[in-house]
Design a protein around this nucleic acid. Structure first.
Lengths: 186, 186
DNA sequence: TCAGGGTCTGACCGATCGGTCAGGCATGCT
DNA sequence: AGCATGCCTGACCGATCGGTCAGACCCTGA
C-alpha cells in the first residue's frame, strides 16, 4: 500500500475536505479519511498532529479573511459598520463557501471549544455591526437570521457561480437589514 | 438510588431536552441524560427503546405542526403559497423554538436518516413555496437563507416573548422574500 | 403467604473513536 | 558499506458509545 509520490499530505487534506463536506467534522473519522486516500490512519496522524489540526489548516484562509474583516470593523459604527459588515461577510461567505460548508452546521459545537473562542468573539462583533447601533431586538434578530442563514445555506450554493451568488446575497442582506442612519459629523 | 415517585419517564424526557439543547443530539450520551436525572443508563433505555425514540418523542409536536402546514400548502401556488408558507413557518419556529433549538444545527445529519426522510421532503416543499413559483435562483437563495437562518437562529431566541419574536420574524420574512404576483383567476 | 408484574440496576457486550508506538523500507549522504 | 532520515505501517491502547440482560426490589391482588 506504499505510495509512489510523496504528495500524501496534500491528498489527505483534499480527502478530509471532501469527507468533512459530505458527513461533517464529527461525522468523519480519521479512518474514513485514510480509506479515502488509500493509506493508513497512522499515516494521517503522521502528517497532522491530530484531527483538529486538519480542520484548522483547512479553515485557515477563511479565518484569516474573517480576521481581516474584524480589523476593518474596529472603530466603525452605525450605517458605515453595517455596510462594511454585510458586504464583507457576503464576500467571505461566497469566497469560502466550500470551507464553511464542510462544517455542516457544527458551528455551535466547534465554537464552544476554547481553540475557537476568538472566532466566537469575532462573530459576535460582526453580528453587532450588522444589527447596527440600534438596540431594538428586531434588528438583532434580522442580523442573526441573516448570519446563520448564509452560513448554513452556503453549503447548497457550491455549484453556483460567484457572480450570480454574490449579488443575490448582497441584495438579500440589504433588504433584510433595516438601514441605520449615518452619524452626522461636525 | 431508587426514586420515590414513578415520574421517572417524564424526568428523563425533560432532562434529555435540556441536555440536547445544551450539547446537541450527537453530543449528548445516554449516560449524560441518566446522570442529569439521577438514574442509571439502563433505566433510560427501560423507558425508551433507544436514543432516537427520545428525540422523536421530543420532536413529535413540532413535526405534527410541520405536517399540518405541509397539508395546507398542497394545491396552493404563487403568492398565496408564499404567504402561507412564510407565516406558517414563522409560527412553527416561534412555537417550537425550544424543540428546534435542541437539534443545534444537526438538521442536515439527522434529515439524512431514512426515518426523517418525510421531513426532508416537507422542508423542500416549504422551500419551494417560500421561493414562489419563480425559478430565479435569487428567490430560492432568499428562501433558503431565511429558512436556515430562522431554524438555526431560534436557539438564541428562547428567552424572548412570543409577541415580540413573531412580528419581528414576520416582518423580516416579508422584507427578505420578494413578492410573487398572484395568478389571475378567470 | 405467595405469585406476578412494573421498575430499576450493575455488569457486560461489541463497535468505534482519536491517538501512540516500535519497527520496516527506501533513499541519499559520508 | 554503513548510517541517518523521511515516510509509512500494523498492532495496540484507553475511553466512550448505544444497547442487552439477568436479577433485585417493591407493590398489589389472590
Amino acid at each position: 500500500m506504499r505510495r509512489a509520490e510523496p504528495e500524501t499530505r496534500g491528498e489527505i487534506l483534499a480527502a478530509a475536505a471532501r469527507r468533512f463536506a459530505a458527513t461533517g467534522y464529527r461525522g468523519t473519522s480519521l479512518q474514513d479519511i485514510a480509506t479515502a486516500v488509500g493509506c493508513s490512519k497512522a499515516t494521517v496522524l503522521y502528517h497532522f498532529a491530530n484531527k483538529e489540526a486538519l480542520l484548522t489548516e483547512l479553515m485557515a484562509p477563511a479565518i484569516a479573511m474573517l480576521q481581516a474583516l474584524d480589523d476593518r470593523l474596529t472603530g466603525l459604527t452605525g450605517g458605515a459598520a453595517q455596510r462594511v459588515a454585510a458586504e464583507g461577510f457576503v464576500d467571505l461567505a461566497v469566497r469560502f463557501r466550500r470551507e464553511i460548508a464542510l462544517l455542516r452546521g457544527e458551528f455551535p459545537e466547534l465554537l464552544q471549544q476554547p481553540a475557537f473562542a476568538h472566532i466566537q468573539r469575532m462573530s459576535e462583533r460582526l453580528l453587532d455591526a450588522m444589527a447596527g447601533t440600534s438596540d431594538r431586538p428586531a434588528a438583532r434578530i434580522a442580523a442573526l437570521v441573516l448570519l446563520a442563514g448564509i452560513s448554513e445555506g452556503c453549503a447548497e450554493f457550491v455549484d453556483m457561480p460567484d457572480d450570480e451568488l454574490r449579488p443575490a446575497l448582497l441584495a438579500l442582506a440589504r433588504r433584510a437589514l433595516e438601514p441605520v442612519p449615518d452619524p452626522i459629523h461636525d
